[in-house]
Amino acid sequence: MSIKKLEPAALNRWVDGILQKQKVYGIQARGDKFVFDQLDRADQLRLDYDVSVTAPKAFLQPPCETLLRFGEKGFESVVESEPFVLFGVHPYDMAAILQMDVVFAEGNPDIHYLERRKNATIVVCDVQNASENVFAGCMGTAVLESGGDVLVTRVGSAYVVESRSARGEALMETIATAPVAGARDLGERKAVWEKNRKLLRRHELKVKPEQLPALLEKSYDHPVWEEKAKRCFSCGSCNLVCPTCYCFNVRDTVSYNLKDGERERVWDGCMLAEFALVAGGHNFRKKKAERYRHRYYRKGKYLHDMHKQIACVGCGRCITACVTKIANPVEIYNRLAEGQK
């Protein structure tokens, strides 16, 4: 696998070359925030970003996507996806994508997600600036040893660019003649990783992530759920920005002829009041505290029971997004751990 060293100008030339051939969704500035959006020029890229407002999952599981089309001939599958590059994904977000890969591939494989995933080339980018609430360092996702197709790391004034898959290798074809990163560059990259493991800890989790399932197992009736949920608006912002939230709703839309239409999948969230509502009016998670607790159990226990991974990657977006400041997972887990002492 190639491992190159690129000066900023060379990196931009490489990206501009990619843009000639493929659609690229890259990290860009919008005001003082950052978002993933279609890239027109390499110099729009902001690999020094701290965190994107929403997670790049949107390019694999869009907020709204057509699953089926229906009309007089009945239903037909819609699998629309073209090759694209997702450029500048932070390691914690890549960790979340790897979890989504498991969810959509296991059991009954979901072709809508898997096709889009198959078409994606993901360029992971090591963090240069820690966001205000990131705690990926506590979750083991500040640095990713594997995953994604290319890893870009800023070392000094240049970048180390490493391919991590055949697809990544193909993306790096145009920089085949670029200088190979030397031992010193790799040493510096290692130093970046060490630094990031320590730096991406704006909140300090006092327990090891692998202890969370057992901690939650004992905390079902803890007063914290009720206390925090009292201030919850059930707005679902924490679900919306979460890179590991993938729950969805499905709805039909009909065209004006009242015959043709589409069945769409849209993002949903377990914090929304109607999430567990059934026809007839019974709501199986009617109370805010039940929904609030469910979200933490889902992230820290239920999904772990299934996949042996904590479904929180420490991006800290929920902490930032929550209007009433009740969504800090570190605060919750530390509080639960306190009671255990």
Partner: peptide, 14 residues
């Protein structure tokens, strides 16, 4: 909602 273990709506705890 989905019947195939994806959408998350029918969770009974885990």
């Amino acid at each position: 909602k989905c019947g195939v273990g994806k959408c998350g709506h029918c969770q009974v705890n885990g």
